[in-house]
Amino acid sequence: MTTDTSQKSAPRASNIAETARRYALFVLLGLMLLGFWWAQPAFINSANLFSILQAVSVVAILGVGVSITMSAGGFDLSVGSVAASAVMAASYAMVVLQLDAVSTFILVLAIGALIGLANGLLIVKVGVPDLLATLSTMFLLAGLQLIPTGGRSITAGMVLPDGSTAKGAYDPAFLLLGRSRLFDIVPLPVVIMAVVAVIAWFLMERTRFGRVFYAIGGNETAAHLAGAPTKAYRLAAYIISGTLASLGGLIIASRVGRGDVSAGNSLLLDAVAASLIGFAVLDKRRPHVLGTVLGAIFVGVLLNGLTMLNAPYYTQDFVKGAVLVGALALTFGLGKRKR
């Protein structure tokens, strides 16, 4: 019967299109790996692949924070400057306050959580729109991080604003955070990224807390009327985001071993881009942890490969933008008519 065939072929065609959209980014990633491998055999050696993961670890960690705030209907523009402030805070803690690695670690994470709390209170209690609140925090931090040192970069033996010389130095144990490798193979930042990703994925996809975050982002009124403490959740989203951003900052600090004024410049845009590219992963059309991490890796692979092929740096932003546009088109444009 004609109706039978039409009923069978239609779903098959749409299933193929759906499957294609779901795995498009995985396939592209695979093709890219093969392409770069073909063009530059050194690309595929495990050291390089781990370098790529290490390079994207900070962006991915920040991106996870961004995507959690996005899932709760917010947007954290301050992650880049929180990470930069964390670099300065960690350096200040060790070089000026002479704290050890563990206390520095705890102190900086607490600062990140506190900034997230401030963001959240500004948004939930004062009622400033998310974008504006976090934008102002971003500027505030960009300046605040310079005040304790009078605008100087923080290095061992630096001259303080009062003319004295800083007595502390980076704790060698602290440097392990960014520079050591698990089993001598996997860089510790990659391990941290994986742990953060798994925990955040579990939280967002498998627990009721994640469900409520998404419900708030989807329809805050509905979530509120269904009994969810929406304000507490939004507050929590910003605290998580701030803490993760400061964790990213700690990794940077331990990688560079000094507190630099310009550290973390491009992190915000990269983290947001990773989150947005993640929308297309598995055709979820929403922020999600797995997508964000994959989005970060996708960009990382592309940039690493292009650098190896000697592509000039200005093509890199272009390529990032092109990937973002493509991913968003994949998310919002293609196949939408079906619905």
Binding site: L302, G305, L309
Partner: peptide
């Protein structure tokens, strides 16, 4: 993208 990558690699 692929053609960009190819062009770069050819270069």
């Amino acid at each position: 993208l692929i053609s960009l990558a190819l062009a770069a690699s050819l270069a």
